[in-house]
């Protein structure tokens, strides 16, 4: 029984130490999210914190109780366990408590989800994206201010971005290897893939959407600060998955206009 006490002690001690380290590093935000840069991301972070508090309480409570039980009810010579088979009121109370907490989280989650998935505001600035192994290409309208149609079927050596040859708006469109957007407007992104699945991930904006061949997928968000951000691919897309890195620059409208005016339209005129 000596061994039993020793095991109980170390078990309880480990559980408490682990819980303390876990709780401290999370609460201290020792290793935390990348800096926040969007309105939607802020709302997601808030919901995250609410969830973290609720689950954190459960995490700590269960581990402390577990450690206590392990120590308190360790086997002793001549000890005898109580014969307890069930406790219906306890089960019902526990289930109801869990259900209430989940209702709060589901309520918050689905409300936010609906908001994020709703159509972008009318004044949103739209960028279209082509994903392919292993790069991103960003599509902007030309001087006519309208984006031309694109489709994989039109892709050829002369028309690498698949612009619709019959679409008059496609004549002056701009394609860039970096993404630039003007600060101050919601940004809508339309995603297409030429080949396999990719995922357009913006860690700072807390945004992510898979890019699916044969489909158009969408996301929109509102940047809260200017700066240069990264776009890692978040869906396994082949051996170069880890180097499929894009760059997003959020800048003032003037800077943006400067930048776009320096880009060469690659319409069908060639």
């Amino acid at each position: 029984m000596k061994l039993s006490s020793r095991q109980a002690f170390w078990y309880a001690a480990f559980l408490l130490v682990f819980t303390a380290i876990a709780a401290y590093t999370v609460a201290n935000k020792t290793w935390w999210f990348p800096p926040l840069a969007s309105v939607q991301g802020g709302e997601i972070d808030n919901l995250f914190m609410i969830t973290l508090v609720i689950t954190g309480i459960v995490f700590i409570a269960v581990h402390v109780v577990l450690a206590y039980f392990v120590w308190r009810y360790r086997g002793r010579p001549g000890g005898k366990a109580a014969y307890v088979t069930h406790n219906t009121p306890f089960e019902i109370t526990a289930a109801a408590t869990v259900a209430v907490a989940l209702v709060i989280l589901v309520g918050g989650g689905t409300t936010l989800w609906t908001k994020i998935q709703s159509p972008p505001p009318a004044d949103a600035f739209t960028v279209e994206v082509w994903a392919e192994q292993f790069r991103w290409t960003f599509h902007y309208p030309g001087a006519d201010g309208r984006m031309g149609n694109v489709d994989v079927r039109f892709i050829s050596d002369d028309n690498p971005y698949g612009l619709d040859p019959n679409d008059p708006y496609a004549k002056d469109d701009i394609f860039a290897t970096e993404m630039h957007v003007p600060y101050g407007k919601p940004i809508a992104v339309i995603l297409r893939s030429k080949d396999v699945l990719h995922s357009f991930f913006l860690p700072n904006f807390r945004m992510k959407m898979d890019v699916v061949p044969g489909m158009k997928t969408r996301m929109w968000f509102t940047p809260t600060q200017a700066g240069v951000f990264e776009i890692p691919c978040a869906e396994l897309c082949g051996v170069g998955h880890y180097i499929m890195r894009g760059v997003l620059t959020v800048e003032s409208p003037e800077q943006f206009n400067d930048w776009i005016s320096q880009q060469t339209p690659v319409g069908m005129s060639q």
Partner: peptide, 12 residues
């Protein structure tokens, strides 16, 4: 499971 440990006579 926690309820099972409660008031037990645990053998490690």
């Amino acid at each position: 499971w926690l309820g099972t440990l409660w008031k037990g006579n645990i053998r490690f």
